[in-house]
């Protein structure tokens, strides 16, 4: 039996680099996850050469990543749609047939969210320091609430399509990865991935927490490219005269590539676990259970 998983996330949340690093990690001999069919897109050599992957421009269909984990056959419906498509889905009730099929067939979801997202201007909160509200002009912050709503709307629509009761505790495995966690640690923020999600998307956080059965929801912080990520470049934009910092970062990144990626848990948000597969293997174990 094949278990389909779906990876979703907004533009610029780092899905592509996450997947490339997973593909790299799963190609190592020691990997508990075995790739039985890997899409060519994931075999890009860029990462191995010390470059990051550029923004995904195109949508491509029917690309499947077949994996085996502890005797379980897993198929990840590759999400190499551009992130804008996720936002479009979240903002409409009219979904394309291919998305309806994806949603109906998926048995688990990986949601990628950027930890770099600023805290929302919590419009439903009684004002504390919201003195700027004395101005009657709408600001960019106004979009934040709608943004939070879009995620809720997406999942409500998903419940409807998958015929999941809106009032039951959901047992559809969901792992939320808060990407770019290296930035959180660099800023020395005392915060867990779960707390970060709560501060960035409070309404969505409440929605997820209330709706999901706790055994089927997990939240991690991840840094697929590790601590050098900020100094790395897309190949096509690599400077002719890179700075010393960029050169060093690339060199160190390539030199010990397999230990670059790390994950943090909510219990120990500062402790880097050099196992990028952790959120995914958690999901693999939940799927079909």
């Amino acid at each position: 039996m094949i278990n389909n998983l779906l990876i979703i996330g907004e533009p610029a949340t780092g899905k592509s680099n996450f997947l490339r690093m997973l593909a790299y990690n799963w190609s190592l001999k020691s990997s508990p996850v075995i790739q039985t069919k890997t899409p060519s897109k994931l075999l890009s050599q860029d990462v191995l050469q010390g470059y990051i992957i550029d923004r995904t421009q195109e949508a491509y269909k029917n690309v499947q990543w077949r994996l085996r984990y502890q005797g379980k056959e897993i198929e990840i419906e590759l999400p190499e749609y551009n992130g804008e498509e996720f936002l479009e889905l979240a903002q409409t009730n009219e979904w394309k047939q291919e998305w309806l099929e994806r949603i109906q067939e998926c048995k688990g979801i990986i949601l990628v969210i950027s930890s770099d997202k600023d805290n929302v201007y919590d419009l439903a909160r009684p004002a504390e320091s919201q003195v700027e509200t004395k101005n009657n002009e709408k600001s960019e912050d106004d979009k934040s609430l709608n943004h939070d709503l879009d995620y809720i709307a997406f999942f409500q629509q998903l419940f409807y399509i998958k015929k999941i009761s809106r009032k039951s505790k959901k047992k559809l495995p969901l792992v939320i990865v808060m990407n770019f966690w290296d930035k959180i640690l660099k800023e020395k923020l005392e915060i867990s991935p779960e707390q970060k999600l709560k501060s960035a998307m409070p309404w969505f956080y409440e929605f997820i927490n209330t709706n999901w059965h706790k055994d089927f929801l997990n939240i991690y912080g991840i840094s697929p490219l590790g601590d050098h990520a900020e100094q790395l470049f897309v190949k096509s934009k690599y400077p002719k005269n890179p700075t010393k910092k960029a050169l060093e970062a690339k060199e160190r990144f390539v030199k010990d590539l397999k230990s670059q990626s790390w994950v943090v848990t909510n219990d120990k948000p500062k402790e880097k676990i050099e196992n990028l597969s952790l959120p995914i293997t958690w999901l693999f174990e939940k799927v079909g259970s």
């Binding site: 004002a127 009657n136 002009e137 609430l145 709503l149 809720i152 409500q156 409440e206 709706n211």
Partner: peptide
């Protein structure tokens, strides 16, 4: 909060609350 079938209406209500006429926040 477990969900709502009037998400846009809530959003607009809150936006109106915040950016209403006058100087007093909220």
């Amino acid at each position: 909060f477990m969900g709502s079938s009037t998400l846009n209406a809530w959003s607009n209500l809150i936006s109106l609350t915040l950016y209403a006429y006058g100087n007093t926040p909220r």
